[in-house]
Amino acid sequence: MPFILEISNLEKSYTSGSKKLKVLEDINFSITENETFAIVGPSGSGKTTLLGLCAGLDRPDSGSVILNGTELSSLSEDERAMLRNRDVGFVFQDFQLLPTLTALENVAVPLELQGDRQATRKAEALLQKVGLADRGDHYPTQLSGGEQQRVALARAFANDPKILFADEPTGNLDAETGEKVVDLLFELNKERGTTLVLVTHDMELARKTKNILTIRGGKIANLTSAAV
C-alpha cells in the first residue's frame, strides 16, 4: 500500500520574546493510504502543531512533509491551498462553520471552489447522510453543537478527500453526542476510503484507529498498532 503522508526529520520552533521554544524535534513517520491514525499526547506536546504541518497549514523549520506524493515545502502558499482543497478534508474542535452561510451552503463551499456544478445536489446528499436533510436552511447559530459538527463532517467529505485531518473532533461535545459524531466519522471514512489522521486527548477514541503515535515534549515517545 503506498504512503499518503511521509514525515521526515521534522523540526518546528516558535520565538516567544527573546526565547526560542522548540515545539517539535526529529519527527519521523509514514501513513499508508486508507489507514486510520491517531496522534495523542498531553496538552502542549505539539500535537496540533504537527497536524498543521502535515496538512500544509504551516511550514516546518526543517525536514519534509510529502502529502499524496507532493513535497509541501516546494509549493507556494496558493499551490498548497489548491492541494488542500483538492486532497484534504478538515474537522476542528470548534466546528469552524461560516456563520453567514446556511448548513447547506457550508457543505457546498469546497465543491463550489472546485467549480462543481453539482455542488448543491452533492451537499444535499451529504447532509442527508449525516442526518440533517431537514436542517439545510439553518444557520450555524440555529444548530446544536452536535449538529454543527455533523455539518462540519459533511463539509470535510464534500471534496472526496484523500486524507482527513480531525483535531479534537469531540472536544466541544458531551459524551453521548461525541460518540455519535465519532461513529459517523468512522463510517464515512470507511465508506469513502479516506485516510484518517486524528488528534485527540481521548485514548478510547484513539484506540479505534489502526496506529497510535504518542508525542511528549515535542518528540515521538511511542508508535503502536491498535487492535481494531
Rank of each mutant, 00 (worst) to 15 (best):
P99I: 02
G178Q: 02
E168F: 00
F186K: 03
F29D: 15
E176D: 14
L104N: 08
Q96G: 15
A158G: 07
Q128H: 15
L24Q: 01
L53K: 02
T177S: 10
E33D: 14
Y139S: 07
R121S: 13
G63D: 11
D202R: 02
L98K: 03
K122V: 09
G17S: 13
T32Q: 15
F29I: 04
G178W: 00
K122R: 07
S74A: 11
L10H: 07
T194H: 07
V182N: 01
V182S: 08
I27S: 06
M82W: 14
F165K: 10
M203F: 14
K19V: 03
I220C: 03
G17C: 12
T36Y: 14
T102M: 08
I7R: 05
V91L: 07
K190L: 09
K162L: 15
V23A: 15
L98A: 08
A166C: 01
F92Q: 03
V65N: 15
A125Q: 15
S8H: 12
R80T: 09
P42M: 13
D61I: 05
R150D: 04
P161S: 04
S8K: 14
N68T: 08
Q149G: 00
Q142S: 11
E11F: 15
Q149I: 03
I212Y: 05
I66R: 11
E35S: 15
N68F: 14
N159G: 03
D167W: 01
V91Y: 01
I4L: 04
G131C: 03
E35Q: 06
T48N: 12
E77S: 07
L185E: 01
G145W: 09
S73K: 10
A38L: 09
L53H: 13
E187L: 10
R135K: 11
K180C: 02
G115Q: 08
I163Y: 02
T15Y: 00
N9I: 09
A103G: 11
M1Y: 14
V40R: 04
A152C: 06
E71D: 15
P161D: 05
L198T: 00
E112A: 15
G89Y: 08
R84Y: 15
D202N: 10
T224F: 04
E176I: 05
T100I: 08
G217T: 05
N106H: 02
M203V: 08
